[in-house]
Amino acid sequence: MDWMFMLIALLKVLVVLVVFVLMLGAVLTWVERRMSALIQDRLGPNRAQIGNVRAWGLLHPIADMFKAFTKEDFVPAGANRMLFFLAPAIALASTLACFAVIPFGPGEHFTIAPLDSGMLFIIAIGSFGIYGVALGGWASNNNFGLLGALRGAAQLVSYEVTMGLNLVGVFAVFGTMSLSQLVLGQGELLWGWLPKWGVVVQPVGFVLFLIASMAENKRAPFDLPEGESEIIGYFAEFSAMRFATFFLTEFVEIVLIAAIAATVFFGGWQIPWLDPQGVAGGFITVAQIGFFVFKIIALCWLQMLIRWTLPRFRYDQLMNLGWKVLLPLSLANIVVTAIVLALS
């Protein structure tokens, strides 16, 4: 653990988290509004400008940030100040920490912390986010906040199970839990032409994973903990930058889900049908990282499209879907996978 190692790790954290993840998360807050507008035949926010530069409204996240910072930072009477302060931080930090094990490119240099059991780390740390929800609702001394936190806790616990179980199938197929090994495994071709991506060998697993992780993200059609359009939920009492932190967490989670899905189900940084030997070394690495980023953005787009397509579930439907449909299906998926693997 010399200082050189620390410095490099710090640099990686800075590049991945600040430059890529937080930027993309902030831009997504604008993309979401523009995209929903286009879906609904509107234009959406396109007016924030500095001088004469408008950039299609890309400056809106900056304006939002200034707004959030200059608003009154309100703490309700009787709130647990300590937890009230911690809740948004926990939510954001636990989400950001998950990016530590995502391999952004080939080799160890492109992962912040190359762990052998990377996926377990994500599942373990990612479920910390539940504390952000539960503590946020609890600490704000508000009945609606507490009810929202209860809904959130129940929902997250239910869907965590499905989310984890659907990754088991992929682990079994590739025989590893390390994300970089998973990506390497997905570089092969099936029957000489089909890329052996997770989504090809585990299509049911991917669909179930996507549903479960969108529920984890607490966005429509699973936005019952918040119910942004009317009941607000666990962050009812949060304002200014604390609220913005919760809000940003949501968008960072979109990026996280997209990153996990791209790594586990879409071959990570692998470019199919491309022979790495044919191209000069530096260029291929850049192309691979670019392709990974492209996959992440495409999956973010898919999640937003789903969010603006489907109406919200009722709470009993949500629980039914989680425990009675998704859980049995993912168990069946594991069993079938195991049988097929044992036979072949």
């Binding site: 995209m35 507008a37 286009l38 879906i39 035949d41 509107r42 234009l43 397509t309 489907l310």
Partner: peptide, 22 residues
Amino acid sequence: RGLRVTSRHFWVNFLTRKNVVT
């Protein structure tokens, strides 16, 4: 089917702004 409708609206408006009423 729902996703097809929303993505059609998105791409048509993204590329041509044809249906935008703003």
